[in-house]
């Protein structure tokens, strides 16, 4: 029997309410299990002495303390109750007509916010969709333009040119195709419309240079005249030399000659 268990049993034997035969049996049991008789007697004596100590009556001060504590406790309880009451009040206040209105506003704004957010994102989606579609259309138009401009029918080539008017971000391919048409197309009217279209892209330096270089390449009087017009519109002074070169030609149409002179005057 270990010490802890022994002490526990002894305490049980001494202070518990075991009486009569049980107590005797217990005493025998303890003695059997290695508890010395003197030791046990000593414990019994101590127990008797302890029981003999009179219980102390609570003093006046203690009483006061106790009631104070009780009061305090009561107070905390009532406070909690009061707080619960105020919650109830708030809940009731909430259902007053003005507040209901406010609440309705709040809900409405919240719902509106949700809807606006939803609408905005869907709008953004729509916008990006439109943007993609637009750029896809532009690409398609470019492909169509580049195909049509090589067709033998002048009507198709005019179509290509009018498509290129709709291409907002004409790349080098489109510009090259138009410049090539301007210089090499067998049809006068197609070349003429190419000049008009290239004029729309005149912000591109490549186009300006192409237009200037083309002046002396043109045999058709109406194209010569149109190029001279465009040079005046663009105030392209560097074209004067080319216009003068053209003016030196022998076979020049009379109307073209006067027009070229007029244009050079306007440019200088």
């Amino acid at each position: 029997m270990d010490k802890k268990k022994k002490i526990k049993l002894i305490t049980e034997y001494l202070f518990n309410n075991t009486r009569g035969t049980d107590k005797r049996k217990m005493r025998e049991f303890l003695l059997e299990h290695g508890v010395a008789e003197e030791e046990l007697s000593e414990f019994e004596k101590l127990a008797r002495e302890l029981n003999a100590i009179p219980e102390r009556e609570p003093g006046e001060k203690m009483k006061i303390n106790f009631y104070n504590n009780l009061e305090e406790y009561k107070n905390t309880i009532s406070e909690r109750e009061a707080r619960m009451l105020s919650f109830k009040n708030i809940w009731e206040e909430l259902w007053q007509p003005v507040l209901v209105k406010r609440l309705a506003y709040a809900v409405a704004i919240f719902v509106f916010g949700c809807l606006a957010g939803y609408w905005y994102t869907s709008e953004m989606k729509y916008k990006t969709q439109v943007n993609t579609m637009f750029s896809e259309m532009q690409d398609m138009q470019k492909v169509m333009m580049l195909t049509l401009i090589q067709q033998p029918s002048p009507t198709d080539r005019l179509k290509a040119i009018s498509i290129s008017n709709q291409i907002s971000n004409a790349d080098d391919k489109v510009i090259d195709a138009l410049l090539n048409t301007l210089n090499n197309d067998p049809n006068v009217n197609v070349r003429l419309m190419a000049v008009e279209t290239l004029y729309n892209f005149a912000d591109n330096p490549k186009v300006r240079i192409g237009l200037i270089k083309s002046i002396t390449k043109q045999e058709s009087p109406i194209v010569q005249v149109t190029l001279a017009d465009v040079m005046v519109l663009l105030q392209e002074k560097s074209s004067v030399d080319e216009l003068k070169k053209l003016l030196e030609r022998n076979n020049l149409n009379e109307s073209v000659e006067s027009k070229l002179k007029n244009s050079i005057e306007l440019l200088i």
Binding site: K159, S162, N189, L192, S220, I222
Partner: peptide, 25 residues
Amino acid sequence: VASSVNGIIKVVFKKVTADAPMAFS
């Protein structure tokens, strides 16, 4: 699609092809 330098261009259409651009100069 017609062009002339010094001559007149006179065209009378009975019907025109839809979507076909034209040019006269």
